[in-house]
Amino acid sequence: MALVRVISSDGAAFLVSQRLAKRSGKLKTEIETFRKSSDNSEAQPEIRIVTIRAEILRLVLQWLQQHQNDPVLPANQNEQDGRGDAEMGQSQWDRDFLAPMDLGIVMELILAANHLEVKGLLDITCKLVESKITGRTVDEIRTAFKLKSDFKGNEEEQTRLENRWCVEN
């Protein structure tokens, strides 16, 4: 089995199968680039991810391992009523996987999934953040994410009036 060494920003090395690693768009590209530039086709690629620390990289690889047999990027059904695939995709395993994480870890995982191009993981982590927005008031949302309003004067009221159609229809 062909392997690849993936090294985190803090120097931890993870030895994983290339088949698994290629489920990340970014690692797939890196492995292919290494192949082209290497004379020895047997050489083991080594990829340094300078933006992701070991704890987070381990989580990404763990998620990839669990989902290694999922179809790659399930295509959206054409025009169907109801929910898209992203909604359906979350398994009990995913929920248990995400449950113990605080918002900081989730944010790091989102950045990692985005950087490594792992769409499924990006979807479920973004979905988790979305659940902290849905059903909250504007002030609660700002508090949850430590965001400050930058609306001046009556801009906020103006926006509310201009966008009544969002809630009325």
């Binding site: 990006l122 309003s149 930058d150 509310r160």
Partner: peptide, 19 residues
């Protein structure tokens, strides 16, 4: 991507958070 997952009912609130 995060905001795209918010249900229709909550979209107005997202517009009111910040510019």
């Amino acid at each position: 991507l995060i905001l795209s997952k918010v249900p229709n009912e909550d979209i107005l609130n997202c517009k009111l958070v910040c510019h």
